[in-house]
Computed example of a mutant assay.
Amino acid sequence: MTRAAGGAPGSSRRLPETGAVLEVRRAVRGWLADYAPDAGQGVAVALSGGADSLALTAAAVVEAAAVDALVVDHQLQSGSDKVAAEAAAKALSLGCRSAHVLPVEVGSAGGLEAAARQARYAALDAARGGLPVLLGHTLDDQAETVLLGLARGSGGRSIQGMAAFAEPWGRPLLGVRRAVTRQLCADLGLTPHEDPHNSAPEFTRVRLRHEVLPLLEEVLGGGVAGALARTAEQLRDDGAVLDALADELLHVASAAPVRAGGPSGGDGPHNDGADSDCPTLSIETLATAPAALRRRAIRAWLRAGGAKALTNKHLQAVDELITAWRGQGGVAVGGGAPGSRLVAAREHGRLTLRLHGSR
């Protein structure tokens, strides 16, 4: 469903200058300046009807050239169509150029949370019309994401949190507390929708929100959410530098020849699997690189070669082909094609990634 707004969006829309309104507006204005300075066609906003996305929509209408509201109806609860229609109506009353309700079918792969997320992002991407999509994730959401990543224990990358912009997804409110978005709604007389899933204890993120983070704040004397968010930002900056150095290492390792009779030559049987488009890498070059760069390079190389759902166990096993060679066979990583599997192996001084027929 698409509904056109009657009013003109943009700077003509006025909001009361309360502390909460000004804070959210500054956040949106700063994001637009940093990441979408030429967004003359406007932006899209993912609107659930909750406080965070309502606050974001209200501020975006004032700060952006135009706003199209995208309301995803997951159809998981009775009356979800009415909730979506109400959110669309609020978007138009705030001054959005248009409001689109996007019904989706949620599957079951990976659990309800993951399946709903996949369906939601696919629908938003299909409906955005080339515009960046602003999401209402707050500083509190960022803190929860960092804690979830910490539990996975897969290194600095897993606790970098969410990016302010990962095209086409924008998150202007990562520095804004959830309490501020609720206050903005109160200041504007908006009644946010309270999703029952946001208080359902069977979801890990809900328990983090209502049990773990409050306990950490109490035990550590406050400021935990902000500290986690700052840590994520610092790790993201560090990660960008390490990723660039890892790319350089991959370039050198793929171009390096194998020295005849060298310490890395003659190892491993020749692999008769089908070649992939992934270049082979010099074992010697990788073995002499710092561990942090080598592991990042391996991860990027595997992903470029089609590996899916990489785990720390996969990465460790492939790294041992380089640093702890004992004559072991190749490492099967997620990916490949029907009837085949993707295998990383050590062959004649090179690290290879090939498709093997199923046996």
Rank of each mutant, 00 (worst) to 15 (best):
M1G: 12
P338M: 15
T181H: 10
T2D: 09
R177Y: 12
T323W: 05
L174Q: 04
A151T: 06
V133D: 02
I283L: 14
P338T: 14
H356M: 15
A122D: 15
R178D: 15
I159R: 06
V180W: 04
A87K: 00
A33H: 05
A27V: 10
A143C: 11
A85F: 12
P192G: 11
G149L: 06
S282K: 12
H193S: 06
A166F: 07
R152W: 00
D140H: 10
C278S: 15
D187N: 08
G10V: 04
G306V: 14
D125W: 11
R157N: 05
G10H: 04
D187G: 03
D243H: 13
D237P: 00
D247V: 01
S98I: 03
A240H: 10
H356W: 15
P214I: 14
L188N: 13
T2A: 10
T352E: 08
V252L: 13
R294T: 03
D34W: 06
G266F: 06
R117E: 00
R3A: 13
L188W: 12
D68Y: 01
A256W: 07
G95F: 01
H210R: 14
A317W: 04
L102G: 01
F165D: 03
G40E: 14
D141M: 03
G334S: 12
V83M: 04
L220S: 03
G153Y: 03
P9D: 07
V106T: 06
G10F: 01
A126D: 14
C185A: 10
G10M: 10
G334F: 06
N271R: 09
D52Y: 10
S98R: 14
G6L: 04
R29F: 03
E233W: 04
E144N: 13
D267Q: 13
L102Y: 02
H314S: 07
G262V: 09
R178L: 13
H270D: 03
A289M: 12
R230C: 02
R296N: 08
L184Q: 14
G153K: 05
N271G: 04
H137A: 08
A297K: 02
Q183Y: 08
R3D: 06
G330S: 13
V343C: 13
G349H: 09
P168T: 00
P168W: 02
A232W: 05
V45D: 00
R3E: 09
Q328P: 00
E23P: 07
P132E: 12
R177G: 15
G305I: 06
S108L: 05
L134P: 01
G50L: 03
L315R: 01
A27Y: 05
L228N: 01
Q118T: 11
W31P: 08
P172F: 10
D267M: 09
R299F: 08
A345C: 06
A99Y: 02
R152F: 01
S53F: 03
P103M: 08
T280A: 10
V318E: 03
R207H: 09
H251E: 13
G266N: 07
G40W: 12
A66W: 00
D243V: 04
P132A: 09
F165W: 15
V206Y: 13
E17N: 12
M162I: 14
G175W: 05
A151D: 07
A324I: 02
G136A: 07
S108Y: 01
H251R: 12
G136S: 11
G305D: 10
R205T: 04
A27E: 09
L54W: 02
A69F: 02
A4Y: 04
A300L: 15
G221N: 06
G30F: 05
G261Q: 06
